[in-house]
Design a protein around this nucleic acid. Sequence first.
DNA 1: TTTTTATATTGCAATATTACGATAATAAAT
DNA 2: ATTTATTATCGTAATATTGCAATATAAAAA
Lengths: 107, 107
Amino acid sequence: MGITKSQIFTESQNDLAHFFKVLGHPARVAILQHISVQNACICNDLVEEIGLAQATISQHLKELKSIGLLDGEVEGKSMCYCINMDRWNTIQEQLNLFFNTTKSNCC
Amino acid sequence: MGITKSQIFTESQNDLAHFFKVLGHPARVAILQHISVQNACICNDLVEEIGLAQATISQHLKELKSIGLLDGEVEGKSMCYCINMDRWNTIQEQLNLFFNTTKSNCC
DNA sequence: TTTTTATATTGCAATATTACGATAATAAAT
DNA sequence: ATTTATTATCGTAATATTGCAATATAAAAA
């Protein structure tokens, strides 16, 4: 086993869980915070500030890109990673919708 | 390796990532929705409605309990799982705080 | 052109997660 | 007391994730 049975869930449940999952790693939380708060959008700056190997950071960046949260722009020989604010806001809304519609309780 | 390097992140980053991670599985999203929307708070009802093995659902319930999102109450020979609304709201606020304070962008 | 610098990709080892059958534990029903 | 029903835990197999070294790629600098 070991494989998530996506077929038995709705697309919306799978999508929502996927957003949560991508955000569910401290390195990816840290990357987003560094980019936004410290303006460290250059890939190599993130490697130095966070303290994981370059290959590892690159992998985490790829996952954040996979849900559209980050846009990468070539800047000379570096890469500048920026938060896609439209996507950011959309995902925040989706998460809030989940929290707000799941409020009623049985007991 | 395969082990997350929690030591290099702040407690707040680890906590936040952990909340996201627990919510990052469609079965756990489904469980929360079933409990709240369909009032199916009895463990066995969840097993039947969701369609995963009883042992698997029990494991997912345990993870939701681990971040305080679910309270379990014995009800005869069954268990009634309810959402802890205080915790629910607190976590929603934390996630929104993250989204709101990570808004500013560099490029 | 060669070297340097920055990032992505590949391959791999260690660990974690998902899922389930089997079994234990507990409480109601007979 | 025995049976039945419900949930938790254990053990295990399959898969996924994390992390890094090594290597490939690409662009600027020398």
